[in-house]
Design a protein around this nucleic acid. Structure first.
Lengths: 197, 197
DNA sequence: GTCTATAATCAGATAGAC
DNA sequence: GTCTATCTGATTATAGAC
């Protein structure tokens, strides 16, 4: 028997899609409800407020993305070098965003606009993810395969900002998602210049 | 004789600072007015609407940043190689953002949230800037000092997203703005890995 | 679980005095 | 050029029928 998607899930899916494309202030409850096949007040049967709904989308986005990246990296097996693991994480992150996951794209889009208290909670949930990236980066430095001259925190911030941006500018065309993610990894790991200084 | 900053300019400065820190929806006219030492309705003596005010902040931000980067690159003189010019542009962009220019930081913060029509106009103004980056990137590829395997457009998008992010996460600490901008340039040009594949 | 009707709130904008 | 008072419109949220 096929269980039709519940009303609650349809609301979350719709909210994620609209937050992703229109931002926090641009995501009206009436639009979200329409995407879920209902009218705005019906949302309140499932969520106590817009803020609660948004926060749940953020948490789902972080969780989905996190799981996807970890699964790909850990799927490499125990023999993979730190640099190979870092590369896999970069590729997985871009692939995931460009595969069109509305939840994780919504996080990248509206995080800066969240109300202060909510942003703190979302950031706390995000921190396990952040730590995972930090570990990948630091492991590559310890192992000698990545530059110790670059600050691990600066690298992480720049790397994540760069990767997160792709869902806002990528449009299908001559390059597919797979090419974009490979280029992201090549650019970050080996740089744009052909020779070292 | 010292001309005190005009009301119009105080409003623009205040709007830029508030847009930068609170985003488009978070920037209330009453807050902007307070920052300019007046009350909200007084803004309408100088600007016909919030949108007009915001658009002028965007245009100023683009113009300031553009001029600053071009001045630094062109200041290198005609003997500078394409890669040296690209590096100078990267460093200048980060320096400028971290020097705390509210106008250009406001552009990076609210661009995605602008109303469609305005965003088109701002994007058009931005395009001369975009073309400048594209020329720097393509020149380095033609000259053989940068990788032709990377798509120039993808490199430009990733590069600008990465650089623009720094005003949202940078906090003065053990690393100063000058170190951040050098690390950005090193990461983009030479990558995080110590050896080529 | 969804609806119609409506309240409450808030921010952008206007009118007109000074 | 700035103010006080007010209007308008949009949006979140509630009440209560079905």
């Amino acid at each position: 028997m096929v269980q039709v998607e519940s009303g609650r899930t349809r609301i979350l899916d719709s909210a994620a899609a609209i937050l992703r494309h229109k931002g926090l202030a641009g995501a009206k409850l009436s639009d979200i409800a329409r995407g879920a096949g209902m009218l705005a007040p019906s949302i309140y049967h499932h969520f106590p407020s817009k803020d609660h709904l948004v926060e749940e989308v953020m948490m789902e986005g972080i969780y989905h993305n996190n799981r996807h990246i970890m699964a790909r990296v850990e799927g490499l097996g125990s023999g993979a070098s730190p640099l190979v693991r870092l590369r896999a994480a970069i590729v997985a992150h871009v692939d995931f965003l460009l595969a069109g996951d509305d939840y994780s794209s919504a996080v990248a889009r509206v995080f800066d606009d969240l109300p202060d208290e909510m942003r703190k909670r979302v950031l706390a949930a995000y921190s396990s993810f952040d730590n995972y990236w930090r570990d990948l980066i630091v492991a590559a430095q310890k192992d000698g395969s990545a530059s110790k001259a670059l600050d691990a925190t600066v690298v992480r911030k720049f790397l994540i900002a760069m990767l997160d941006s792709c869902s806002s500018w990528y449009r299908p065309g001559k390059l597919g998602p797979a090419q974009i993610s490979e280029q992201a990894a090549d650019l970050l790991l080996y740089g744009f210049a052909t020779e070292r200084p």
